[in-house]
Amino acid sequence: MKNLLYIFILLYASTLYSQKKGLIYYGFIDAIGTGNAKGPDSNAYMVFNKEKSYYVTAKDSLEKTENIDKQTTYSNDDEKSASIHLGMKVSRIGDQVFYNTKKNTIWSNFLRGNQVFVNEIATKIDWKISNETKKIGNFTCKKATALFRGRNYTAWFTSEIPVPFGPWKLNGLPGLILEAYDSEKNVFWYFKSVEYPSNTREPISNIRNIKGNKATYLSIPEFEKYCREEIQQSYEKMIIISKQHPGIVPVKGKLKDHFIEIIGKNE
């Protein structure tokens, strides 16, 4: 009887440990098209435990109305390219990523005209951890680098919060990622604050959808096809516009100029 009680206590303690929640707030700069972390700066957060994480950004309830409607132009350092934003990209559900380590699956969505939903087996990221450290907030962080989905990423993680999660789809390090960016800073996540453990009631469950809407999930090959078709359609629209406005020169953009993920060849 004592042995059974001991086993029950161990199982209960293990369950509580795995359910111990954390909540981290990030800033996310989307500088795709200009680089150098020059782009709309959105709020983001991630709630997590030992087994799962739920990340969201570009959600209207996270932003002030004046920032959502603000029109801004961002140029790169040599001013050879610019990105005009007629307002911050937001939706009711936001851009989301749900990662389940036990099932090794990632469910995600993002807004591009309509909501695009993707389901995939989690990719093992080949991180190279260096001895370089820096302080972020009150945490000592180590530097790690990796090539993931066509971009070279740098991540700063802390083993003081020993979970393998980070913003968006960045994961697999022996500690929580507090800051991350690609080599050209087309995407940049920076640390704001963290609660660990946290009493948040935010559920760590699959991505949300608008009530009554049905989501069709794309596989990774289907997602790549979707991205290429989107770029081709944009290019064809530019050709039509250029015929009406001779000063406009249509340019077919590359995947890296339109999407965070570069799947397949970036031609």
Rank of each mutant, 00 (worst) to 15 (best):
L10K: 04
T34D: 02
K185T: 10
P250L: 01
Y26I: 01
K256H: 11
W107I: 10
G172T: 08
G166N: 04
N100C: 14
E184H: 07
K70W: 00
N114I: 11
P167S: 07
V194T: 03
N76C: 06
P164L: 05
Y153F: 15
Y99V: 11
L218Y: 15
G137I: 04
I136A: 00
E229Y: 11
I9N: 08
D257P: 02
K89Y: 04
M238Y: 11
N3E: 15
L10Q: 06
K185F: 01
E267D: 14
P221K: 02
E222F: 05
T154K: 06
A155G: 05
Q233D: 13
G137K: 05
F259H: 05
E202H: 04
M238P: 07
K211W: 06
I210Q: 14
A37F: 06
L16Q: 15
E179T: 13
G150T: 00
M238C: 12
K254Y: 10
N114M: 12
W127Y: 00
P164V: 10
T154F: 00
F117A: 13
I263W: 07
L170S: 07
H258K: 11
I106T: 08
A82D: 04
S108Q: 10
H258S: 10
W156D: 03
E120N: 02
T73F: 05
G175I: 08
Q244M: 14
Q244W: 06
R228V: 12
T123N: 11
A146M: 02
N76M: 10
G212Y: 00
E230R: 14
Y26E: 05
S61M: 09
T145I: 12
K50W: 08
F28G: 00
T158W: 03
T140P: 03
P167T: 08
V90F: 09
G150E: 02
E202F: 07
V163H: 08
K102D: 15
K59E: 13
V56I: 14
E79A: 15
G35E: 01
N109K: 01
K70P: 08
Y99W: 15
L86N: 09
S18Q: 13
G137V: 09
K142A: 01
K185V: 05
G247I: 01
E63C: 06
K143A: 01
W156F: 00
D77A: 10
E236A: 06
L178D: 02
S42C: 08
Q96H: 04
D69G: 09
P246Q: 03
Y153L: 09
L23C: 00
I231G: 08
Y190H: 05
D30I: 01
K143D: 06
F165N: 12
S108M: 14
F157K: 07
K80L: 09
E229K: 10
K256V: 07
R112S: 10
I231M: 12
P167E: 11
G175S: 02
E120M: 13
E267V: 08
S75E: 12
V249K: 02
I241R: 07
F139V: 03
K237F: 12
A180R: 02
F48S: 00
I220P: 01
Y217F: 11
T158F: 07
M88G: 05
